[in-house]
């Protein structure tokens, strides 16, 4: 039985696809057979972030409509063993996803995979609800910024009321906060919400903090998940997050501004 994890946020542009690619790769690197599904029908981008855009033949909607089999649509990652991608359809709209269709695909994938990562589209409409409906766990990607935090709280409400687990009164979805685009320097200056500020407001366990990093754009330019950039702070922070997802203890890193000298500290420069 696979564990189904939705990567969601409500707000767009906070790093859902970047995080899905990184965490999915991280899980596969640990030897867990993992598939990442792009639920953003009509606006697919996971293929581009994973660098497999030219290998897409069939997609998620083709499988739901039985126009292709799962094995035809799944793309095996070239870099990481045990990692597969199921791309979204670019020509359809979100109505192409149905509860029954999604359930059937997830059940089939469950037989073969250890982890199914659902990369949710932005918003709270049908696409986002489909992505979270069958989830066992949710990674809520949030930026330290007012609109993102508010939208994250909204999506937490939907996880708690409109998911399958909620509707069937089962054990609730495990919720994890992933704080991305964090800028310790601006936090120190009081210009950005801190980790503990966001934790106070959302009140869910923290999976990780990904610092703002040039490596993220560089990785997406090249179509490589940033977790493979093991020299970058963002890559290391994602690795730590994957370890925590596996239940391991990892101290938080990259939250402090580089230490200053005594005189500078005294003057508060």
């Amino acid at each position: 039985m696979a564990k189904i994890i939705v990567v969601t946020s409500g707000k767009g542009g906070v790093g859902k696809t970047t995080s899905s690619a990184a965490i999915g790769t991280g899980l596969a690197l640990k030897g867990h057979k993992t598939v990442i599904i792009d639920f953003d029908v009509g606006l697919r981008n996971l293929d581009l972030i994973m660098g497999c855009e030219r290998r897409v033949v069939y997609d998620f909607v083709n499988v739901i409509n039985k126009e292709a089999t799962l094995s035809q649509a799944l793309i095996k990652d070239k870099r990481t063993k045990d990692l597969f991608i199921l791309p979204a359809s670019q020509t359809r709209d979100k109505d192409a996803l149905t509860i029954e269709g999604v359930q059937e695909v997830l059940e089939e994938l469950s037989k073969e995979f250890d982890y199914i990562l659902c990369d949710s589209p932005a918003g709270i409409e049908k696409g986002a609800q489909m992505a979270l409906y069958f989830a066992d766990a949710a990674i809520v990607v949030t930026n330290p910024e007012v609109s993102s935090v508010r939208d994250s709280d909204r999506i937490l409400g939907i996880l708690q009321s409109k998911s399958k687990r909620a509707e069937e009164n089962k054990e609730p979805i495990e919720e994890y906060l992933l704080l991305t685009r964090y800028h310790p320097g601006r936090v120190a200056l009081g210009e950005m919400l801190s980790v503990s500020d966001v934790e106070d407001i959302l009140a869910i366990p923290l999976l990780g903090v990904i610092p703002e990093s040039e490596a993220v754009l560089k990785a997406s330019n090249q179509g490589t998940p940033v977790i493979l950039d093991t020299a970058s702070e963002a890559g290391i922070a994602y690795s730590d997050a994957v370890d925590r997802l596996m239940g391991e203890e990892r101290p938080l890193r990259f939250l402090d501004v580089q230490k200053k000298g005594f005189i500078k500290r005294l003057l508060g420069g």
């Binding site: 007012v146 935090v149 508010r150 936090v187 200056l189 009081g190 210009e191 500020d197 407001i201």
Partner: peptide, 19 residues
Amino acid sequence: PTSASVAKDRLQIIVAHER
């Protein structure tokens, strides 16, 4: 107060209201 603490206060109020 810093702009971050203003942000936190505003968020706490609106989030509590929406909950």
